[in-house]
Structure formats: C-alpha cells, structure tokens
C-alpha cells in the first residue's frame, strides 16, 4: 500500500514541476533576483516538518533536531519574504 502512496506523491511532485516551469518561464529577467529570494522563502515550507518534530516531544535528540530545523526554516521564511518585499517595493515605473 505504501508504494501506491509513494506513486501518488510522485504524481503530485511531477505535476507541480510542470506548473513551476510554466510559471517561471514567464517571469521577466528584471525580476529574477526577487524571484529567487521569493521562491527561496517558499522552500522554507519545510518549517511545517520542523514544527512537528520540535513539538512532538518524542525524545531529547529529535526535539533538539526539531528546534535547530525550526530556527533554520524560520530564518529562511522570515528573511526570504522580508527581503523580497524590500526589493519589490523599489521596482517602480516613472
């Protein structure tokens, strides 16, 4: 059964890659830096996994690992979105 689950997840993965290709090829070069930092913030979605590992309270080792992961992921998410917003604020047309 778990193999079927895995295949369903691979479906999702492959389709999302196609969506990503479609979307990103339309982003103009002028916005490539904010695209990188903005998509980078999205990759911080692993924060969801970090929250669960840090909060499950299974054993000391996994809790500490969870805390480290959570700090890393939060830096990625908060830093990524803020810096992207800072950049995009500057793109103006006179």
């Amino acid at each position: 059964m778990e193999i079927l689950d895995l295949i369903m997840q691979i479906y999702v993965f492959v389709l999302a890659i196609f969506v990503g290709f479609e979307l990103i090829t339309k982003v103009p070069p002028t916005l490539h830096t904010p695209l990188m930092s903005g998509s980078n913030a999205i990759s911080g979605i692993t924060i969801v996994g970090a929250l669960i590992v840090a909060g499950e309270g299974q054993n000391m080792l996994s809790t500490i690992l969870g805390l480290v992961a959570l700090i890393f992921a939060t830096i990625n998410v908060v830093g990524g979105y803020l810096v992207t917003d800072r950049m995009l604020k500057m793109f103006k047309k006179k």
């Binding site: 999302a16 969506v19 990503g20 999205i42 692993t46 996994g49």
Partner: peptide, 24 residues
C-alpha cells in the same frame, strides 16, 4: 521532506522552487 512526512503541500512548494532554480 514532503515525501518523508507525507505532506503534499511540501512536495508542491518544493517542486515549484526546484523548477524555478533549474530554469534560472
């Protein structure tokens, strides 16, 4: 990580970023 914790949202978000990085 999405595969590890069986979470489709992580799989989707990660794939979008993966595609973005490869295109750039």
């Amino acid at each position: 990580t999405g595969f590890v914790i069986s979470n489709n949202m992580l799989i989707i978000a990660g794939a979008l970023v993966g595609a973005s990085g490869i295109i750039l």
